[in-house]
Design a protein around this nucleic acid. Structure first.
Length: 861
RNA sequence: GGGUGCUUAGCUCAGUGGUAGAGCGUCUCGUUUACACCGAGAAUGUCGGGGGUUCGAAACCCUCAGCGCCCA
């Protein structure tokens, strides 16, 4: 562990300090929350990663932002709880273990349910949760003593409890419906587990019936026509009005089906007549209910045609489509066909198989009352969405939600706590209860999101009335990507408001974007542009990765990420390291009181003023979740103000040995800067701060407060002038081909306050203060600069420099003149703007005179 | 099809009415005892096109074009 005054290595190596520092924080127990504390609580639940997951760049962003908030609040004196854990991830995890079995030529059915599930637990114990170790690498200040898993005993108990509670409240029911079915995973999927893609299908028009009594329907799914129970048209469609109520012959199966009228039919789509396949299409299902159309099932769970009584039985659904169309063509019933026909088709979000709408008996959550409560919580302002521009998307979703299918035909997950009796009885078995003898349990498990929807309260011990629940619920803020707003956030809102008597699970929902590649393209395996956060941490350190991500995190928007930018953040870390090392070599200290501002020189006053502004503005940006802007602000203070200017300007006093005040000021500035940066870059700041101050740890150090007494516009103006002078002289030297490192005789003369700092400026400019005969002289504002170039001035270069300056300033002058000559501007622009432009005009005129004069005395080339 | 967002320097992005900015990249010079993972200096934009509002527009309105996302 580092100690005060320890000499810092000349190069910063993240790998050497990160792991030991994390160990230090853990063993000190800094991240362990105390539910009995009198401090105000601040709590976050980590969006639980899948137990199968490894840390990807999206996690790194999500967790960096959460850690940053947690660390700030901890430093601000809150009792902070950041609760970690994992999700059992039903389908994903089952797939992983099934794949392993398949490698041995086995299926889960060879093992049987019980053995398979224990195999999954075994897998979890051995290979699951790799992501948790990777989170340590990132520096996450989570409370490991409270780590949870969505299938641990406590959460399992909570799941059963809430199922019972919702069932009793008639919010859970069982029904036969059209659900999204994956023919590969062999399970139902909820709407959000279906991804719509534009696929190249076909659009064919088929003539049903014959002669007078015929109608042409348009469809993309010809293979389902054997299951048709009707043809539907719009009630007001003049083309078909006369046919409503009559029957037509359904080809291939030669069955008579009615023509019905329903508002749902779009007369402008296709022929305006559609087939109604009640058992294989959700819209058709709705229509069928209204019109008593029979449900004809013609496909099995694998997507194989079955029960149609035609030659197509036994064929795969996609082969059948081809065969059916071919047969219809043979029969002369194809009127038109379009191929390819691009349209949206649902795919399983897990395995990409085309989803099949399927009639089946499933468990559902009646979402209307829950969704309304969730919407109201945001509308009333009880829950804030950040950035608020994303709130309409939330409303759009919760206001139009379909009932949620929660049963899954899987083995890995929370088994539905419903038991069936021998005579069709059904009983929900709550916690601690047991089913009557002879009853058998429902075979299905619950949707993963059913349990993770309880993450904000079950993790605190619900349904027990625990101290954690009392202290930390509702949580302060939920940080997550906008991409899982619907998957998870809405579910948490619904489940929590229901379980917690109307108290929503968080006060603020902070949404961030996705991390994309360096060209702003989505990362994907197929594109080959996926980056590995662990690799970046290995190469550049965790702080560099975190800082890069935070610096790109504008609220609610995606960010691009390139390896070079992480490298840039590593450079920043090295800069901090070297600046601190240099400061300490020059006696920077936090010992003793900070001298009264009044007694300080302008350079010290200036850096304190800038520090104050930086703390004030960064703090306010952090409070508004403006991570990118806060990071940018601190970065420029540290690099530009502190390193490029303050340290350079202070070198003279360090060199001359009269630097006691500056040593104390510099110590203070670094101390405060490290605190301010700690949430973003916890490792390096800790290392440097402990070394500088001898303090125990930044994790428990006090968050910096802006001392407004340090604000000093006079000092700021003075230093701004000094910067202008130095920059101009450097430019002159550069144009004259004088190396920046070369010491040359020279002097700066001026009057007033600025005169006191002529030697500091001269020191930065490497001007030798000795007797000499100037060969070059020029003015920057009120400052006269005389130099001995030990030779003649490069007249061509100097003329070019001055001519360019003149052109720039003349343009400025013209702009100002045009404005002031504009009657409308003079009459309507605010007084302060007019004053500002007038001042600008005066300045430009002075500059023009100065440059013109300088050009005039310049010898001709 | 409905909704929504974007278009600013080579790239990625800030910038919601008053002289166009950052990071990375580019060019020139430079190893000065904090730092070459660095320093100094420089170049680079009719702010997607067109129209309008305004004394004044990158910003506000309309329109067109291109790209993206969400939902169906």
């Amino acid at each position: 562990m580092s100690q005060r005054g320890k000499e810092l290595a000349s190069t910063f190596s993240p790998a050497e300090i990160e792991a030991p520092l994390y160990e230090k924080w853990i063993s000190a127990g800094y991240f362990t929350a105390d539910a009995n504390s009198s401090k105000e609580p601040f709590s976050i639940v980590l969006p639980p990663p899948n137990v199968t997951g490894i840390l990807h760049i999206g996690h790194a962003l999500d967790q960096t932002l959460q850690d940053c908030l947690a660390r700030i609040k901890r430093m601000k004196g809150y009792e902070v709880l950041w609760l970690p854990g994992m999700d059992h991830a039903g389908i994903a995890t089952q797939n992983v273990v099934e794949k392993q079995l398949a490698a041995q030529g086995m299926s889960r059915h060879d093992l049987g349910r019980e053995e398979f599930v224990s195999k999954v637990w075994q897998w979890k114990a051995e290979s699951g949760g790799a992501i948790l170790d990777q989170m340590r690498r990132l520096g996450d200040s989570v409370d490991w003593s409270r780590e949870r898993f969505t299938m641990d005993d406590g959460m399992s108990n909570a799941v059963v409890t809430i199922f019972r509670k919702m069932y009793d409240a008639e919010l859970i029911y069982r029904a036969e419906r059209i659900i999204n079915w994956c023919t590969r995973c062999l399970t139902a999927l909820s709407d959000i587990e279906v991804e719509h893609q534009d696929d190249a299908g076909e659009f064919v028009q088929v003539r049903y019936g014959d002669g007078e009594q015929s109608i042409v329907v348009a469809t993309t799914r010809a293979e389902t026509m054997m299951g048709d129970g009707a043809v539907a048209v719009h009630p007001d469609d003049p083309r078909y009005k006369h046919m409503i109520g009559t029957e037509v012959l359904l080809p291939l199966v030669n069955r008579m089906i009615p023509i019905i009228a329903d508002e749902l039919v779009d007369p402008d789509f296709g022929t305006g007549a559609v087939k109604v396949t009640a058992a294989h299409d959700p819209n058709d299902f709705e229509m069928a209910l209204r019109h008593n159309v029979p449900f004809v099932v013609i496909m099995n769970e694998h997507g194989i045609m079955e029960g149609s009584g035609t030659e197509f039985d036994g064929m795969d659904r996609f082969d059948a489509r081809v065969a059916v169309v071919a047969k219809l063509k043979e029969l002369g019933r194809i009127v038109a066909e379009k191929r390819p026909y691009i349209h949206a088709v649902g795919h399983c979000s897990r395995c990409d198989t085309t989803v099949e709408p399927r009639l089946s008996k499933q468990w559902f959550v009646k979402v209307a009352p829950l969704a309304k409560a969730s919407a109201d919580a945001v509308r009333s302002g009880a829950v804030k969405i950040e950035p608020e521009e994303l709130a309409p998307r939330y409303f759009d979703w919760v206001d139009n939600m379909h009932d949620w299918c929660i049963s899954r035909q899987l083995w890995w997950g929370h088994r539905i706590p419903v038991w069936y009796g021998p005579n069709g009885e059904m009983v929900v078995v709550g916690p601690g209860e047991s089913a009557p003898v002879g009853y058998v349990q429902d075979l299905d498990v619950l949707d993963t999101w059913f349990s993770s929807g309880q993450w904000a309260f079950s993790t605190f011990g619900w349904p027990e009335k625990t101290n954690d629940l009392a202290k930390f619920y509702p949580t302060s803020v939920l940080v997550t990507g906008y991409d899982i707003l619907f998957f998870w956030v809405v579910r948490m809102m619904m489940m929590s408001t229901f379980a917690m008597d109307g108290v929503p699970p968080f006060k603020t929902i902070m949404l961030h974007g996705l991390v994309r590649d360096q060209f702003g393209k989505k990362m994907s395996k197929s594109r080959g542009n996926v980056v590995d956060p662990l690799e970046f941490m290995d190469k550049y350190g965790a702080d560099a990765l975190r800082f890069t991500l935070a610096r790109g995190a504008n609220p609610g928007t995606d960010q691009a990420l390139a390896e070079e930018w992480v490298g840039g953040s590593r450079n920043f870390a090295t800069k901090l390291w070297n600046a601190t090392r240099f400061a300490m070599m020059n006696g920077a200290t936090v010992e003793g009181p900070i001298p009264d501002a009044a007694s300080l020189n302008a350079i010290d006053k200036w850096i304190l003023s800038r520090l104050t502004e930086t703390i004030r503005d960064a703090d306010s940006l952090f409070e508004k979740f403006e991570f990118a802007k806060a990071s940018e602000l601190i970065y420029h203070f540290a690099w530009d103000d502190l390193c490029d200017w303050y340290l350079e300007l202070a070198k003279e006093s360090f060199a001359t040995g009269s630097a006691a005040d500056s040593q104390r000021v510099l110590g203070h500035v670094l101390d405060q800067l490290m605190r301010l940066l700690h949430p973003l870059m916890p490792f390096i700041t800790e290392e440097l701060w402990v070394s500088l101050t001898g303090g125990e740890s930044l994790v428990i150090a006090k968050w910096p407060e802006a001392n407004l007494n340090y604000l000093d516009k006079t000092a700021e103006n003075l230093v701004t002038q000094m910067q202008a002078v130095i920059t101009e002289v450097r430019r002159f030297r550069n144009d004259q081909g004088v190396k920046a490192t070369a010491k040359i005789p020279g002097r700066l003369t001026t009057s007033g306050e600025l005169a006191k700092y002529a030697s500091a400026m001269g020191f930065v400019l490497k001007l030798e203060a000795k007797e000499f005969t100037p060969t070059a002289a020029f003015e920057i504002g009120s400052v006269k600069c005389e130099l001995d170039l030990s030779g003649t001035v490069d007249v061509v270069a100097e003329r070019a420099r001055l001519t360019k300056d003149l052109a720039t300033i003349q343009k400025d002058q013209q702009t100002a003149q045009v404005k002031l000559g504009n009657e409308g501007f003079m009459a309507k622009a605010p007084a302060e703007v007019v004053t500002e432009i007038k001042e600008r005009l005066v300045k430009t005129q002075a500059e023009i005179e100065r440059i013109t004069a300088a050009l005039a005395v310049l010898p001709s080339a």
